[in-house]
Nucleic acid binder design. Structure first.
Length: 596
RNA sequence: GGGGGCGUAGCUCAAUUGGUUAGAGUACCAGACUGUCGAUCUGGGUGUUGCGGGUUCGAGUCCCGUCGUCCCCGCCA
């Protein structure tokens, strides 16, 4: 037996017991005579002690240990002298007096201290196995495991069956860029890694699975962000014979379960709902952070016949004037205002109009002089303007004004300290538009082409497609999109009609989606589902800033695996096997894995 | 594809207007020390200032390029 206990286990009750422990040397405190070693494993830290009077041989060996050496020790659990107890340690009431030690493995000096948080991330990623050894990262991995387990348990209790779907599948040019895998046996043909198991899960509904879920790995070859990795994991769910309400109910319960298991207590159910239209109007985004106010207010009516030319022109052109009250930011430095103006311009605004309300109630602003008394009075009333407030205006086409103010609202909320850190505000955003226009002005699915139109808008599909709502929904937490889904189309004729509206020629639709429309034609039940990004869910539950902290081996912003050195060139033999020829010399040198 | 930040000892950082031998803490190495738990004390600098080029009597510092990493926009059905 390598060990009788773990390093987090021993307590006063174990005093007098002979034990064997294994772990990593956390710190060595050598007093010339007695030597203390903090022994660490996943479960905790135990102080072991070597005294030459107990065993000269063991003492000699213990003196040669260094940080991160892997050792096995054997000795007796002792009470610490009363004044020497360490309250910071769970095992702090005891220590292990050792007369045997074996060095199981030595360690080089670690490239960075394992007890330090301020280490550059590329170094952590290069030596991820050491980074993951840190108690904090172990806790993250454990949390992730517990959440995943809770999800499985919950869905199992709700009659869901976990089904695995292929990783090697077919490219669907719509949506994100695919990762491609060349086929050896079909020269010139490629598999694609799934962006999501979308079509498979719908086919499982046709197959009568009724309730499916999967903790599914997804791949998207797009640029990375703090909350986006090229491969990520979804809690993928699909249900038959349901309406949106059934999805909300199941996922409400799931969110409550995850909050509970993560130690955040009970949340009030049902989770609030907000239409896409309201979200855009009130928060300027489809993923509103509902932890604070500062809601956007439309002022077009207040300024309907204003003398202020900038607003006037926008309103005449069919645009809107909107604003929000950044309460308490009236004294914000001009430097910050300049920065925000720059950001507003980046968001498409011509400029950023504002009023800084002084403590005495007077308005300091370059534009107020153009406002009539009535306009000023109505402004004050509508925005509930008080001393010390900051009012930020946007005048433009509605989406531009909303988008800009939506971003500014977040900055203002943060600057004002108006966002409570320990609050968890879930919200459903519902009734997304079915379509949007792409850069070339063509109709495109906002969610995906299998999303059911809202039944009330069915007659506008051809006449006014952009106004058609979808039976689509997102679940949002504190301004972060955790997931989204929809009720799907189960009528093959409607599905074909949507493909047609999207400008996909019949033949191409058959080629790309024939398997799906054909399946729908064989008695597909009404169905719908949702997918939640589990990386983001876990990130939110630990209060993290990036999903890299909850992924064991994440990639850098350039999609590199610094530890493995992936991606990397392959040799000509491998290329030949899959019938590939490079049109460009191999770019860059091979990333050397860590030496030594 | 675009904007911005960072890059100096193993690690985290400092280095005046461009100035002479690039420092600090920590880690590491050696020695001392029998109750520490961020051990302490003494001694030791271990450096291609990311890389390449340029300007200059002189570059960590200025200029150009390049690489890496992070944040954001675009992109992410």
């Amino acid at each position: 037996m390598m060990r009788t206990h773990t390093c987090g286990e021993l307590r006063k009750e174990n005093i007098g017991v002979r034990v064997r422990l294994c772990g990593w040397v956390d710190t060595v405190r050598d007093h010339g005579g007695v030597i203390f070693i903090d022994l660490r494993d996943r479960y905790g830290l135990t102080q072991v002690i070597f005294d030459p009077r107990d065993s000269q041989e063991a003492w000699d060996l213990s003196q040669t240990t260094r940080g991160e050496y892997v050792i096995q020790v054997e000795g007796d659990v002792e009470a610490r002298p009363p004044e020497m107890e360490n309250e910071k340690l769970a095992t702090g009431a005891i220590e292990v007096r050792c007369d045997r030690i074996q060095i199981l493995n030595k360690s080089l000096t670690p490239p960075f201290p394992l007890d330090d948080k301020g280490v550059s991330e590329d170094l952590r990623l290069t030596y991820r196995y050491l980074d993951l050894r840190r108690p904090q990262m172990q806790e993250h991995m454990r949390k992730r495991h517990e959440i995943t387990q809770a999800v499985r348990r919950y869905l199992d209790q709700h009659q869901f069956t976990e089904v695995e779907t292929p990783i090697l599948t077919k490219s669907t040019p719509e949506g994100a860029r695919d990762y491609l895998v060349p086929s050896r046996v079909a020269p010139g043909a490629f598999y694609a890694l799934p962006q999501a198991p979308q079509q498979y899960k719908q086919l499982l509904m046709v197959a009568g699975s009724d309730r499916y879920y999967q903790i599914a790995r997804c791949f998207r070859d797009e640029d990375l962000r703090a909350d986006r990795q090229p491969e990520f994991t979804q809690i993928d769910v699909e249900m038959s014979f349901i309406t949106r309400e059934d999805i909300y109910e199941v996922i409400d319960g799931l969110c409550a379960e995850v909050m509970q298991i993560s130690g955040h207590g009970n949340i009030t159910l049902p989770i609030a709902r907000l239409s896409y239209e309201d979200a855009m109007n009130r928060f300027g985004t489809d993923r509103p952070d509902m932890r604070f106010g500062m809601e956007l207010v439309e002022l077009s009516e207040v300024f309907r016949d204003t003398g202020f030319n900038v607003f006037k022109k926008v309103l005449e052109a069919g645009g809107v004037v909107k604003a929000f009250n950044a309460r308490g930011l009236g004294a914000v430095p001009i430097r910050v205002m300049d920065e925000w103006t720059g950001l507003a311009q980046e968001a498409g605004l011509g400029g950023l109009a504002y009023i800084r309300v002084q403590e005495d109630g007077t308005w300091k602003s370059p534009i107020v002089k153009f406002f009539s008394d009535r306009e000023q009075a109505e402004l004050k009333e509508t925005l509930d303007i008080r001393p010390g407030d900051l009012i930020l205006f946007a005048a433009d086409k509605r989406p531009v004004a909303d988008g800009a103010l939506g971003r500014l609202r977040l900055l203002a909320g943060r600057a004002a300290g108006a966002i409570p850190e320990n609050k968890y505000s879930f919200v459903w955003v519902t009734d997304f538009p079915l379509f949007m226009r792409d850069e070339e002005g063509r109709l495109q699915s906002m969610h995906h082409p299998f999303t059911s139109p809202h039944p009330e808008d069915m007659d506008k599909l051809e006449s006014d497609p952009l106004s058609v709502r979808a039976l689509a929904y997102d679940i949002v937490l504190n301004g972060v999109e955790l997931g989204g889904g929809s009720i799907r189309i189960h009528d093959p004729d409607l599905q074909k009609r949507i493909f047609h509206l999207l400008g996909i020629p019949k033949e191409e639709a058959e080629d790309r989606f024939g398997h799906l429309t054909r399946a729908l034609a064989y008695g597909a039940p009404p169905h719908g589902g949702i997918a939640l990004g589990i990386d983001r869910v876990v990130m939110m539950m630990i209060g993290g800033r990036t999903i890299r902290d909850v992924i064991a081996f994440p990639k850098t912003q350039k999609a590199m695996d610094l530890m493995m050195g992936a991606p990397a060139p392959v040799d000509d033999r491998q290329l030949k096997d899959v019938h590939l020829k490079l049109t460009r010399p191999r770019g860059g040198e091979e990333k050397k894995p860590v030496d030594e």
